[in-house]
Design a protein around this nucleic acid. Structure first.
Length: 271
DNA sequence: AGATGTCCCTGGAAGC
DNA sequence: TGCTTCCAGGGACATC
């Protein structure tokens, strides 16, 4: 579910409401991807200062340490005053003085990890190799092109890897490459400066617009207040294999790249 | 070091 | 209806 826009929309939907809250109780359900790294009870009494985002991670700054939170493939957060009883897929919960933060994650690819500070080895392992923030000031076309020039693998896989630019997931990768007119299998290093600049712009435009509209990709998504997004990405290519391209009517093609599906138009996208 | 394949887990849809 | 198979928005890790 969550690519960068959904994570950012989730952050915005509860950051102000949880800021300043004191943790009254912490509980875990089934194990998530990684262990929390501390006893849940040791979180009790601490205050949540702020909620930031890095790539697809949410960072809950505490007055002592921080929590790294990842939604994986199927995770979603809710922050409610009076939540219902925890369900079978609610695997992490913080009861605070200002509401209950709860992670629901059926597939349990998500994670909540405690780190003493951002330079903690635990945090560095997860955040250390992340690429540029696509909506940040450091994401500039020249640096982007430089990053791509060093990579021989397919541009789609370089986007997904997240070490050049973060936040572009499997759906947006196909969409963004369509908008930029670039075939997904093109080696990243073969992209000219102008084509890299086009891709840079497509990434910015699509992600920024999705955040503005409150997220929502192709399936269910709701923010921490339970509100659906209004972006309703009208996919040009994703999951449209066999259907006519909305621009040129050529049938959209599907391929597998690194065990993930990719969709593109042979006519509109050039190698 | 970079590229590639494997695996973690549950559930829904499609096929038989 | 019920069983099996495949697929899903992520990413760390092992291997070459």
């Amino acid at each position: 579910m969550p690519e960068l826009p959904e994570v950012e929309v989730t952050r915005i939907s509860f950051a102000d409401r949880i800021a300043g809250a004191q943790i009254l109780e912490a509980r875990m359900g089934k194990p998530l991807r990684w262990p929390l790294g501390c006893g849940p009870e040791s979180l009790v009494g601490r205050h949540v200062l702020a909620v930031r985002r890095r790539g697809k991670y949410l960072l809950l700054d505490l007055d002592q340490g921080l929590l790294l939170l990842h939604l994986g493939m199927s995770g979603s957060l809710s922050f409610m005053l009076n939540p219902p009883e925890p369900g079978k897929h609610d695997h992490f919960e913080l009861r605070t003085s200002q509401g209950v933060l709860r992670l629901n994650d059926p597939r349990r690819f998500g994670a909540v990890v405690f780190a003493t500070h951002e330079a903690d080895p635990v945090a560095l392992k997860l955040l250390g190799k992340l690429g540029m923030e696509p909506l940040g000031a450091d994401f500039d076309p020249k640096l982007f092109h430089l990053g791509l020039s060093k990579r021989k693998s397919a541009i789609k896989q370089v986007l997904l890897a997240g070490d050049v630019v973060v936040g572009v997931g499997n759906i947006y990768a196909s969409e963004v490459l369509f908008l930029a007119g670039i075939r997904p299998a093109t080696p990243a290093s073969r992209l000219s400066r102008p084509r890299a600049a086009r891709l840079h712009q497509a990434i910015r435009d699509v992600l920024a617009r999705a955040v503005e509209r409150g997220g929502s990709t192709l399936r269910d998504f709701s923010n921490a207040q339970g509100e659906a997004g209004h972006f309703q990405l009208d996919a040009m290519v994703y999951a449209r294999d066999g259907q006519a391209c909305k621009v040129c009517a050529t049938p959209i093609r599907a391929i597998r790249q690194g065990q993930r599906s990719t969709f593109f138009c042979v006519q509109c996208q050039k190698p």
